[in-house]
Amino acid sequence: MPQPIDTVKRTIAEVVAARKTQMSPGGLFVEAFAKDGFGTSVDYDVTITDSLTSSRRKPRYPSRNMLKVVNLSADPQDFYWHESPPRPDDPAVDGADLRREAANHFHRSPIPPLLTTTAWVQVPDTLWEDPVSFAQFIDYRLVVRLATAENHTILRGEGGLLGMPELGRLTDPGPFGSTILSACNEVEQMGSTADGLIINPADYYRLLGSGTLMRDVEDNGVFIVRTRLVDPGTAIVGDFGHGALLFDAGRSTIGFAEPPPGTFAEPGVALRAEIWERVVVNLPTCFFVVTL
């Protein structure tokens, strides 16, 4: 059964409420800055994009929230399982005509090397003299920039979902009148449930304004992430809850650093934030990049 969308949102709300009782990444950095000045570098024993909260009445969730996160610092592991579709020369498998997944192959693979996600901001001159504003700038600008960079890692970067050739491609809406609904059906025909949709905002609002598809999909328990990092005219549909993992180092760093050439339009004091993570897909037959 699909997880109700309200349950997902309640879970996120509970996590956000718990984080409000903890000192923010910006607060911790400003506390260290009071002692170490422009040599400050802070290591966090959490992934700070997971600390990101929003005061918006209309939240927009990052891709991270779609995935089951494995904190390798808290729960170390070396391998993961995954499946692959049947090969053309495979012998017939009993029952695979009705249960397609019965013909899949099972695999055990080492966790691939985690990728570095980096974000930069330029600190407005003398902002560091106001601890409250400086902490807010880190929390709501640097960490937000890092969350955008994380979306790129998960979706478009090396090892990102959009670069995985094993994910299905679907262009035919079939009898459903929508490739999104057609993909949801294909996932269920594989014995799973399409519980997530990642879509460009331009397509989300176009579909929202031209009918009830977006509302119907969300009401049916599909968690929707809107991001510019999916090309307009396409979307990702899949079983994110059971079919993919985000391996996470469970640590982060923020510090003053010299940015690479071309990072900013003018010189200035810069902060760099970094996290380490990698997405893998256990059930590639339960994911589709669809053409809208």
Rank of each mutant, 00 (worst) to 15 (best):
T7H: 11
T11E: 15
V16D: 15
A34T: 01
G37P: 13
F38I: 10
T40A: 09
Y44M: 04
I48F: 05
S54G: 08
K58H: 11
Y61W: 10
L67W: 05
K68Y: 14
V70H: 14
N71C: 11
D78M: 01
Y80W: 12
E83H: 15
P86K: 14
D97P: 03
L98W: 06
H105D: 13
P112T: 02
P124H: 06
P124Q: 06
D125T: 06
D130K: 13
D139P: 03
R141L: 13
V143Q: 08
L146V: 08
T148V: 12
I154T: 03
G157H: 03
G157M: 08
E158P: 09
G159L: 00
L162R: 10
E166C: 02
E166Q: 13
E166V: 09
L170G: 02
P175E: 14
F176T: 15
G177F: 00
T179N: 05
S182R: 13
S182Y: 01
A183N: 05
M190L: 12
G191P: 06
S192Q: 13
A194M: 07
A194H: 07
I198M: 07
I199L: 11
L208V: 08
G209F: 06
T212L: 07
F223P: 04
A235E: 11
G238L: 03
G243Q: 00
D248K: 02
F256A: 08
A257D: 09
P259M: 00
P260Y: 00
P261D: 09
R272A: 10
R272V: 12
E274H: 12
I275P: 01
T285D: 15
F287N: 09
F288H: 12
V290G: 04
L292Y: 13
